[in-house]
Design a protein around this nucleic acid. Structure first.
Lengths: 207, 207, 207, 207
DNA sequence: GATGAATGAGAGTTCATTCAT
DNA sequence: AATGAATGAACTCTCATTCAT
C-alpha cells in the first residue's frame, strides 16, 4: 500500500476542471473515504466507484492508480486536520487546545477505519509529506502554547506528540475502544504530558 | 484479515500427530512468523510454504484457512508474551516490571511487522480470546504490583494499559520509530501512569 | 485491426468543411501517421489526439472509428505511392523505374512502422480497395515498360510484383534490416525479375 | 508484444513435471498455436485457456506472462523448423532442398496466422535468440549445399535468405496469397537466387 | 500425510467510444 | 465544431483453496 512516488497526480486537484469533473472528483473522494473507512485500504476500487455513482473508468481517470486515490485521500485528511489545528491555535485555550485536538483525533479514528491507517504510512509522497509537515507544524504550535501556559512540561517535543497521536488513533480504531476506554487511555497520556519529567529508563533491551 | 470465527482450528495443536507432521507444523508457524513480519498480513501463503520448505498443500492441511494460520500465529505470540509477563510477575522488580514489559513490547514491534498488527485484532476467536485474556491477566498482575510499589497511581486500570500497549506497539511498527523516539514516547506514557491523577476532561466530542 | 466494412467514411474528405475542420483533419492524419509509425497500429487513439493538438472527441468526429482512421491513413499512403508511381511512369527510365520504386518502398518501410502493416491489409474497404487498384495499375504500367525495355522477363505479372513488394516492405520493417541487408535482399528479387524464366517447381506441399 | 526479457521461463519445458502438468503444458501450447494463428497475437489469453480445456490460472502457472506464452510458442515453432531443416540437410536433394524449405514455410504461413508474425520479432529473448540462431545455421547449411550443387549463385549469403524467407512468409500470411500467387512469387525469388549476380543498384534514396 | 498442479473469482488497469457542456 | 469527462467491456495477472497423484 502506498508505494513509490510514481503516478504523479495528473491534474490540479480543484483547479481548471469542468464543473461535473470537479463534482465527480469530490464524490469519489467522499465515497473512497467511506469505503476505506469501513473496509480498510484493501477494499475494492470498484466499490468506491459504485458508492460514488460513477463508472470505474471515471475513478481511474481522476486517480490513475489505486495508490493515487489513497494518497489523495490522505492528503485531504491531513489538510482537514491541519485546518482544525490552525483554528485551535488561533482561538483555543492554550492550556487545553493540544489535549482537545488529541482527543478529537482519537475519537474520529474510533469511528472511521482508515484515518490513521493512512496517517501511519506518511513519508511516501512529496505532496503528502508536505501535508504531514504542515500538520506537524500546527501541532508544534499547539504544543508550544500549551507549554507556555504551563499545561505541558517543557521537555516534551513535537515528535513524540505526533507519534503518540497516530498510534493512539490507530489503536482506538483497530481495538474498537469504547468512549470510556478512550477517556482512560487519553487520561494517562495527558497526565504524562503534564507531569514533571519523571526519571524513567528508556526501553531496557532485555526484560 | 482475521474474519469471523469459522474455520476453527481442526487439529489438536500438538496432540496425536506423526513426528514429521508436528515438525512441519512448527516449521510453518516459524516461517509464517517471519514472512508476515516482513511483508504484513497480506503476504502470500505460498511464500510461507516456500520459506518453510514444504508444499502449499501442507500448509493448508495444517491450517485449513489463511485466517487459521494467522490466528494460530497470534495465539503463539500471545502465549510467549504471557509467559514473559509471568516471569516478570515472579522475579521482576514490582516498581519497574510493568514498564519493562511495555518497553520490551514496543521494541519488538518496531522490529517485527505483524506482532501488533495481530495483537490489535484480538477478540475474533475463542482460543485467541482466551490467550488474550491470559495476557491481560498477567498484565493486570504486573499493574497491581506496580501500584502496590507506588510506581503507578491507584486508579489506572488494566484496560487502558493494554490499550496503550497495543497502540504504541502498532505505532512503533508502522511509524518506524527510532530508538530515541521510542524512549521519548514511552517516557510520556510512563509519566502518565505514575503521575497523580490529573483532572483531565475526557474526549470533548466537538473540537 | 481494420475489420469489416462498417463505419464507412462519413464525410467528404475535403468537401464542404469549415476551414478549421479541414485543418484539423489534416493535422490528425499527420499525427496518426507519426504515432502509428512509431508504435504500430495498436497505439492509443488518445495519443494521436494529443500529438495533433486536438481533443479526443475531435478525432472521433472526423473518423467515427479507429478503423476509419486507419483506413483513411492507408488511403492517403496509397495515393502518395500511386502519385510516385505515376511520376516514374512518365519521366523514369523504363529499365529501372520499377526497381527504383521497389527499392524506395522497402526503404520507407524500414523507417516507418505501419506503412506496410497497412498495405498488407488491403481489400477491406471500397475506397481503399480502389486506391489499391490504382497503385496496382501504376505498378503494372511500370512493369510493362520494364518488360518492353527488356529489364524484366516477359512472364512476370503485376500480382507477384505487388506481393513481393508488400512482403519485402513488411519484412524490412519488422526485421529492422540495415541498408546492406536491404540491398542484398533486393538484389535477389531484382535478379529474379530479370532472369530468364527459371524452371522452378512451385511450392511442393510436403517438404 | 514480446517485450523485455523478464519473466524468465520458470520451469524446464519438459523436464521434471508431473504427468498431468506436462500434458497441460502441451495442450496450452497447442491451443495457443491455434488461437494466435486464427486471431493474431492480440487474442485473449482466456480464449487459449478455454480452447485448451483448462482454467485461466493454469495458463498463467505455466507461462507467468502472456509474453512468456508467446515466446514459448515461438521457440517451439523455431525448433520444429530447425528440425525440418536438419532433415532436409541430411536427406534432401542439395539442389532443391533450400527451395523446398522456402516454399514449405511460405505455405505454412499462408495457413497459420502468427507463424511469421512471431518469426519477425526475434531477438528479444535469450532462449529464442538461440533458437533463431539454430534455424539460421540450418538454413546456411542448406544454402551452402545448394551453392555447391550449382543451384544457387555463389555470392548469396544466409542473411538475405532468412530475410526473404520471413518477409515472404509474413506477406503470404497477411496478403492471403492463393497457391498460384505463392508459386509465382516464389518463382521470382528462386530465379533471383539462381541467376548470375545481376548488377543492380541498391535502394536509391530518392525516386 | 505430503505434494504441487488446477481452479476460478476478483483485482487493477486500459481504451475505443459516447455525450453533456 | 470542439472539448474532454464518463462509460464499461475486456484484458492481464494474483492468490486462497481444492484435489488428483
Amino acid at each position: 500500500m502506498l508505494s513509490k512516488g510514481e503516478g504523479q497526480v495528473a491534474m490540479t486537484p480543484s483547479g481548471g476542471l469542468r464543473a461535473d469533473a470537479r463534482r465527480n472528483r469530490a464524490r469519489i473522494l467522499a465515497a473512497a473515504g467511506e469505503v476505506f473507512a469501513e473496509r480498510g485500504a484493501s477494499a475494492a476500487t470498484e466499490e468506491v466507484a459504485r458508492r460514488a455513482g460513477v463508472a470505474i473508468g471515471t475513478v481511474f481517470r481522476h486517480f490513475p492508480t489505486k495508490d493515487d486515490l489513497l494518497r489523495a485521500l490522505m492528503k485531504d485528511l491531513l489538510e482537514r486536520l491541519t485546518e482544525q489545528v490552525g483554528r485551535l491555535a488561533a482561538d483555543g485555550d492554550p492550556a487545553t487546545a493540544l489535549f482537545d485536538f488529541f482527543a478529537s483525533l482519537v475519537e474520529q479514528a474510533a469511528a472511521r477505519k482508515s484515518v490513521v491507517e493512512l496517517l501511519a504510512t506518511a513519508g511516501t509522497d512529496v505532496q503528502v509529506t508536505a501535508a504531514v509537515q504542515s500538520l506537524r507544524d500546527g501541532i508544534a504550535r499547539l504544543l508550544t502554547r500549551a507549554q507556555q501556559a504551563g499545561a505541558v512540561r517543557a521537555d516534551v517535543q513535537a515528535g513524540e506528540v505526533m507519534a503518540l497521536l497516530t498510534s493512539t488513533g490507530q489503536g482506538a480504531l483497530q481495538g474498537g475502544w469504547d468512549i470510556e476506554l478512550q477517556a482512560r487511555a487519553l487520561a494517562v497520556i495527558f497526565a504524562g504530558l503534564r507531569a514533571p519529567a519523571a526519571a524513567v529508563r528508556p526501553a531496557s533491551p532485555r526484560a
